[in-house]
Simulated assay, not measured.
Amino acid sequence: MEGGGADAANRVCRPRSAAEARQEVEFALYPLRCAPDARYRTAHLAGVQDATLVASELVGHVLHHGAALSRDCFLVCSLYRDEITISVTDPCDEPLPAFPDAPDPGRTGLAGGGWWLVHQVADQVQVVQLAEGGRSITAAVPLSGP
């Protein structure tokens, strides 16, 4: 995950739904769609589906497990040259497995499928417990050109 720099563009919001989270990612990726360089326009097309999926799963988890706490959910999208990082901060202290297993419909249904999917799509996933309670989950989704 790249650090903040002069070439980073950030969007911060409090999504009330997974659909709002997807929309914020699309807004964050908009500069790529308008780029004069074809490589960056292609990166937008390659990355938008993965990035919106990751944002949707992370925010959806917060809303599913604590709908009343959704007002404390923050989404930050940071666009860099080769990746977009999606960070979701929520008040939940529930531990998450560092390396989730693929969902097994016969054993557990699809429980944990979204967390597994985030790990499949993102290059890096980082969970940080916050001193004031809650956690911040950051996923770096690669943007690749032609």
Rank of each mutant, 00 (worst) to 15 (best):
F74H: 14
M1L: 12
Q126V: 11
T89M: 09
P91I: 00
T89W: 06
L58F: 00
L63H: 10
P36M: 08
S136A: 13
A51F: 01
Y40R: 15
G112V: 01
P31K: 04
Q126F: 06
G109K: 06
L75S: 07
M1A: 12
R22E: 09
A35T: 00
A98L: 07
R41Q: 11
V121H: 04
D50H: 11
L29F: 08
G5I: 04
V88R: 04
A9F: 15
V118N: 04
V128N: 12
W115L: 03
E57D: 09
P97Y: 00
G145H: 06
P15Q: 08
V62W: 02
P36A: 09
D7K: 13
Q124C: 08
G5D: 11
V48K: 11
A19S: 14
R81Q: 15
A140C: 08
A98D: 07
D104E: 08
A111I: 07
V141W: 04
A55M: 09
R16A: 14
R135I: 03
E57T: 02
A68S: 13
A68L: 13
Y30I: 05
L45Q: 12
S78Y: 11
H65I: 00
A102T: 03
D123R: 10
V12H: 15
R33N: 12
I86L: 08
A9E: 15
V118Q: 04
L29Q: 05
A51G: 04
R16K: 12
Q129S: 14
A43C: 07
P146S: 06
A21C: 08
V59Y: 00
P100Q: 04
V125L: 02
E57W: 04
G3P: 13
A140Y: 02
